[in-house]
C-alpha cells in the first residue's frame, strides 16, 4: 500500500503520469477485449490447429485418429476428381460473385447516399434481407427459382423471354446460387455507405467550383477516397465467397452432377456424411492456405491502389 502511495504522490512529473495513464488505458483495453481473445483462442485458434493435425490422420470421430502422414493430401491432389471439381466450382463462384457484389453494393450505396425523401426507409429496405436467416432465404429462393412453378420464370414468360432451367441443369446451378447470394449484400453496402459519408464535402465543393463533371468527381474523388472501404469489402467478400455453403447445401445439395458442389460443401460431405473427418480436415487446411494466399495478394497489391488520407499528413 505504502509503496503505491509513494509512487502516486511522489512522482509528479508529467511524463510518468502520462505513462501510468497509458498503462491504465491498456489495462482497460485488455479487459474489454478479453472475451474476444478467449473466444479467438478457444473457438478459432484451437480448431484451426487441430484441423491441421487431424488432416494428417485418418479419423472417423468414433475411434481415435490414426496418423497417416501426408496420405490425405496425396489422395486430394492425385486421386480425387471431386476435389478439383469443387475447387473449380468455387473459383467460378468467387470470380463472378465478388466483382458483382462489390459493384452492386457500391451502386446501391451511392444511391442511398443521395438526399431524397424517405431515405431511412430505403436504407432499411435494402438492408432487410440481412436480417432474414440464410436458411429461410435459401428455401424461399428455391421456390422463386423453381423452373416450372417458380415466380421468376413466370415473370420471364410474361415478358416473352425464355424460361431458365435454374438450379436443375449443370449450366444454371451456379448462376442461380450467385443470383440468390446477391440478396445478402447489405453488409457490404453499409460499409460503402459509411465510407461515402466519411468523404469530406469540401472536396466536392472545391471540385464544383473548378467545374468538374459528375463523372470526374466519381473517379477522382469518390472512388479514390473510398479505396480503404473497397479493400476491406474485397477481402471480406473473397473470404466469404470461398466459404460459400448454405445456399448450395439447401438449394441444390451440390447437384446436378456436382455442378454446384462447392468446396466447403465437399468438406461437409466428406466429414459429416462420409465420416472422413481426417480427409475433411485436410481439405479445410488447403482452403485455409488458399484464402490466406489470396488475402496476402490483395493486401500486397493494396499498397499501389489504396489511398489512406492519414498517411499523407
Amino acid at each position: 500500500m505504502k509503496v503505491i502511495k509513494h509512487t502516486e504522490t511522489a512522482v509528479i512529473p508529467r511524463k510518468s503520469r502520462h505513462i501510468s495513464m497509458t498503462g491504465k488505458e491498456a489495462l482497460w483495453g485488455y479487459i474489454f477485449i478479453s472475451p474476444w481473445i478467449a473466444g479467438l483462442l478457444a473457438f478459432s485458434a484451437l480448431p484451426i490447429l487441430s484441423a491441421i493435425f487431424y488432416g494428417l490422420t485418418r479419423y472417423d470421430i468414433f475411434s481415435p485418429p490414426v496418423w497417416i502422414g501426408l496420405k490425405n493430401y496425396k489422395k486430394m491432389f492425385s486421386d480425387d476428381p471431386l476435389f478439383w471439381k469443387s475447387l473449380y466450382n468455387t473459383a467460378y463462384f468467387v470470380s463472378i460473385s465478388v466483382p458483382l457484389r462489390l459493384l452492386i453494393a457500391f451502386t446501391l450505396a451511392m444511391l442511398l447516399n443521395s438526399k431524397i425523401k424517405g431515405l431511412a426507409l430505403f436504407r432499411s429496405f435494402f438492408y432487410l434481407p440481412m436480417v432474414v436467416p440464410i436458411v429461410a432465404t435459401a428455401i424461399l429462393s428455391s421456390w422463386i427459382l423453381q423452373p416450372r412453378i417458380g415466380i421468376l420464370n413466370y415473370c420471364l414468360r410474361l415478358l416473352k423471354l425464355p424460361a431458365i432451367q435454374w438450379m436443375v441443369t449443370e449450366m444454371w446451378s451456379k448462376p442461380a446460387i450467385i443470383l440468390v447470394s446477391l440478396w445478402r449484400i447489405g453488409e457490404t453496402m453499409i460499409i460503402f455507405l459509411a465510407g461515402l459519408q466519411g468523404i469530406p464535402t469540401q472536396l466536392y465543393e472545391a471540385a464544383d467550383i473548378d467545374g468538374a463533371t459528375q463523372r470526374s468527381k466519381l473517379f477522382r474523388i469518390t472512388i479514390p477516397m473510398l479505396t480503404p472501404a473497397i479493400l476491406f469489402n474485397l477481402v471480406i467478400n473473397i473470404i466469404h465467397s470461398f466459404q460459400v455453403f448454405a445456399f448450395a447445401f439447401i438449394m441444390t445439395n451440390g447437384g446436378p452432377l456436382n455442378s454446384s458442389l462447392f468446396y466447403v460443401l465437399y468438406i461437409y460431405r466428406q466429414g459429416f456424411w462420409f465420416f472422413h473427418m481426417g480427409y475433411a480436415s485436410g481439405l479445410a487446411t488447403v482452403l485455409f492456405l488458399i484464402i490466406l494466399i489470396f488475402t496476402i495478394l490483395v493486401f500486397r497489391s493494396s499498397e499501389s491502389w489504396v489511398y489512406y488520407e492519414a498517411e499523407k499528413r
Binding site: 428455401i139 423453381q146 423452373p147 438449394m251
Partner: peptide, 21 residues
C-alpha cells in the same frame, strides 16, 4: 430427361415440388 427436369426437381424440401405438381 432434360425435358422434365422442372418436374423432377427434388432440391426443395424432399419432394415438395413433385407433391405440388
Amino acid at each position: 430427361y432434360d425435358n422434365i427436369l422442372g418436374f423432377t426437381d427434388k432440391t426443395i424440401s424432399s419432394g415438395r415440388v413433385q407433391r405440388a405438381e
